[in-house]
Simulated scan of single mutants.
Amino acid sequence: MTNTLESHIEELRREASHCDPAERAQIEAELEQARAELAAIVAAEDAEPPH
């Protein structure tokens, strides 16, 4: 799951650098949401005790 989110974040970053300002705001919002999801997943994985 994290690989998919990391790929999505990279794709959004590339899009944000090559679009008009109106689209950039929307892409930046999506990027922030994806980063928050990734951080939550990583935090949950770190909180799990090793098996």
Score class of each variant (00 low, 15 high):
residue 5 L to A: 01
residue 18 H to E: 15
residue 16 A to F: 07
residue 8 H to G: 02
residue 12 L to A: 02
residue 1 M to Q: 12
residue 9 I to W: 06
residue 2 T to M: 14
residue 37 E to A: 05
residue 41 I to N: 03
residue 49 P to G: 11
residue 42 V to L: 12
residue 24 R to H: 09
residue 23 E to S: 15
residue 1 M to S: 13
residue 5 L to S: 03
residue 19 C to L: 01
residue 43 A to G: 01
residue 50 P to H: 04
residue 49 P to T: 06
residue 19 C to N: 05
residue 24 R to K: 15
residue 12 L to S: 01
residue 18 H to S: 13
residue 4 T to I: 08
residue 51 H to K: 06
residue 9 I to Q: 04
residue 2 T to S: 13
residue 44 A to R: 15
residue 26 Q to C: 00
residue 5 L to C: 05
residue 12 L to Q: 00
residue 25 A to E: 14
residue 44 A to D: 12
residue 15 E to H: 09
residue 22 A to V: 05
residue 9 I to N: 06
residue 26 Q to L: 13
residue 17 S to W: 04
residue 33 Q to N: 06
residue 6 E to P: 00
residue 48 E to R: 13
residue 30 E to K: 13
residue 41 I to Y: 01
residue 47 A to K: 08
residue 37 E to Y: 06
residue 45 E to G: 03
residue 41 I to W: 05
residue 35 R to E: 15
residue 4 T to H: 12
residue 51 H to W: 10
residue 30 E to Y: 03
residue 30 E to A: 05
residue 45 E to F: 00
residue 24 R to N: 06
residue 22 A to I: 04
residue 18 H to A: 09
residue 17 S to K: 14
residue 31 L to H: 01
residue 6 E to C: 03
residue 48 E to S: 00
residue 48 E to I: 01
residue 31 L to Q: 02
residue 11 E to F: 11
residue 32 E to S: 14
residue 46 D to Y: 08
residue 8 H to A: 05
residue 40 A to D: 13
residue 45 E to S: 10
residue 6 E to L: 10
residue 2 T to R: 12
residue 28 E to K: 11
residue 28 E to F: 00
residue 15 E to Q: 15
residue 15 E to V: 05
residue 19 C to H: 03
residue 41 I to R: 14
residue 11 E to G: 02
residue 7 S to H: 10
residue 11 E to R: 11
residue 9 I to C: 10
residue 48 E to K: 14
residue 43 A to H: 02
residue 47 A to N: 09
residue 41 I to C: 00
residue 27 I to Y: 07
residue 5 L to M: 09
residue 31 L to M: 08
residue 37 E to H: 10
residue 14 R to M: 02
residue 17 S to I: 00
residue 29 A to V: 02
residue 15 E to D: 06
residue 29 A to F: 07
residue 48 E to A: 03
residue 19 C to W: 03
residue 40 A to L: 07
residue 39 A to C: 01
residue 50 P to T: 08
residue 42 V to K: 14
residue 21 P to L: 07
residue 42 V to H: 07
residue 33 Q to W: 02
residue 1 M to W: 08
residue 23 E to H: 14
residue 19 C to S: 15
residue 1 M to I: 03
residue 37 E to Q: 13
residue 38 L to E: 02
residue 4 T to P: 00
residue 30 E to S: 09
residue 22 A to P: 00
residue 27 I to K: 13
residue 34 A to P: 10
residue 22 A to N: 13
residue 35 R to L: 11
residue 22 A to R: 11
residue 44 A to F: 07
residue 20 D to G: 14
residue 22 A to F: 10
residue 25 A to N: 01
residue 38 L to S: 04
residue 6 E to D: 12
residue 19 C to M: 11
residue 32 E to P: 03
residue 5 L to Q: 04
residue 11 E to Q: 15
residue 17 S to D: 10
residue 29 A to T: 09
residue 39 A to F: 05
residue 8 H to F: 12
residue 5 L to K: 04
